[in-house]
Design a protein around this nucleic acid. Structure first.
Lengths: 272, 272
DNA sequence: CGTGTCGTTGAAATACTTCAATAAATGTGG
DNA sequence: CCACATTTATTGAAGTATTTCAACGACACG
């Protein structure tokens, strides 16, 4: 019931505008990446040579509007996708039609992971904002990886980082306090933005509360309350999807630098 | 505080004996895999040819006793590990020294995932039972993957499955009811055993309650109570680490085939 | 046979979920 | 440009589950 009603609709209302005013362009037009930048990491491989390899692969540029699907559960297509601009989410649809958000994908990140095995996709990818995605056909990529150890290493490295993110997600979900989960989520978002050279203090959330709730294993009301309390504690300034981090250190502490399954006594007391 | 006290000790008491009697050999001696079987999947590649490739890699056989570490957080060694027999867990150690169990690894499964990137390991691997692990040096493997598309595909496929498991883990952690998480965990364990050709009804848990609790994002008492209630509902028969699945269908239902973030009304009512 | 670890059980405190209502924001149409 | 309808987000109150604190029982080990 969470999101079944908005599976297909483009949902234009979703992302474009966030604050009534102070509406800065987010994601869509900022930091568009070249095909080569999409796959290389840490200058392990010379961009020129990589570009040549990638061109031969015939990468397909995909343009998505908010709400559009890149691929669906059960798809047999196993290409490698890399986000060039915008934000997407991957999710599973539960037996009762409920949404289960697995991850959010920003510019430069791998998508889907379904390309790794020959099995059908177990999740679907939906654009949260307008987005550009680079699609590399898997068979060609497979061949290219054989020829270029650098490319192979580069892709494995990216996969490794995606796995690390998944594990961070699991760690986050393991925390008992909603505040800790939200704090960890925002902190990760901060690092994420910083990594792309954007401001780490102003966060423009590309996803709604429902997406955050699902990602954090909470209900929407709890997320809302956690936002409010984080604001009351002077850690954040929240205004819809516009979030300003006032105290990054505290945010990090709250995210779980505290105790493993406690926090109650030390953290909760600060509520009033 | 969860497990800092048992980080290094071999902890002989941990696994070897579970039921006072009825003590069957678990994991250690059962289903030991050949070096070739370690890496091939679905007969995509002829075992003979693969065996030749793998031999050239100079795989190292590692023998672990319960409680021994295969690698630690921060290690710079990036080899690929495959479990040949026994069970291991990967975990992170939180800033306060608390344990965070990320996954359990059974025979045939990849380990660590740290080999993918050049960065230091972010988690450590510890043997739960006596275990045999196959270690493939990464540089050689990298080269071999370039030469053999089958090997490359095989490894990517395994990575893909490991990622799918991580996602299942996240989905599990997203469930609000302890019963649902435990049920899902046991159900997964069932499928896991079945996949290795073992009995799906009798489960011999290689890990303690603390490991399960950490993996499920719960405290140990809650796990214990969940076991008890699952037993009261005639779904399981529990005796320490020996679990018998009486109603596999119910177990699956309880695991989350129910509602996304509800279950309370429909599931909890059955408590009495 | 005591000691230590592991697992279970009980009672109180706390946090989350649920249900319900309200407020804010977006988009549409007049 | 404003009013209306829809979606999204916030807030309140009650119910329920988990955590916490504490004690007990079971089982290996020395």
């Amino acid at each position: 019931m969470l999101a079944t009603h908005s599976l297909e609709k483009p949902m234009k209302t979703d992302v474009r505008s966030c604050g009534t005013r102070a509406d800065i362009a987010f994601g869509a037009e900022v930091s568009r990446l070249s095909a080569a930048t999409c796959l290389h990491t840490l200058a392990q491989i010379e961009a020129t040579r990589l570009e040549a390899i990638l061109q031969r692969l015939g990468p397909e540029a995909v343009r998505l509007e908010p709400g559009e699907r890149l691929f669906a559960e059960g798809d047999e297509q196993h290409d490698l996708h890399v986000v060039r601009s915008g934000v997407l989410k991957t999710r599973r649809i539960g037996v009762q039609g409920e949404e289960l958000v697995l991850d959010f994908h920003f510019a430069g990140e791998l998508l889907g992971r379904g390309f790794l095995s020959g099995r059908p996709q177990r999740c679907e990818a939906v654009a949260l904002t307008a987005a550009d995605v680079c699609r590399f056909p898997m068979p060609a990529l497979e061949e290219a990886m054989s020829e270029s150890v650098e490319l192979q290493r580069s892709i494995l490295d990216r996969i490794g980082r995606a796995i690390a993110r998944d594990q961070d997600h699991a760690v986050l979900l393991g925390r008992p306090l909603a505040q800790a989960r939200l704090a960890g989520f925002l902190h990760e978002l901060q690092r994420c933005q910083q990594g792309r050279g954007e401001s780490p203090v102003r966060i423009q959330l590309p996803m709604g509360r429902a997406d955050i709730a699902s990602y954090l294993g909470l209900v929407i009301e709890t997320v809302s309350r956690a936002f409010t309390r984080l604001q009351e504690e002077q850690v954040l300034k929240v205004s819809g999807r516009r979030v300003q981090v006032l105290d990054s250190k505290r945010l990090c502490e709250l995210s779980g630098e505290g105790a493993p399954a406690c926090g109650a006594t030390s953290v909760m007391r600060r509520r009033a």
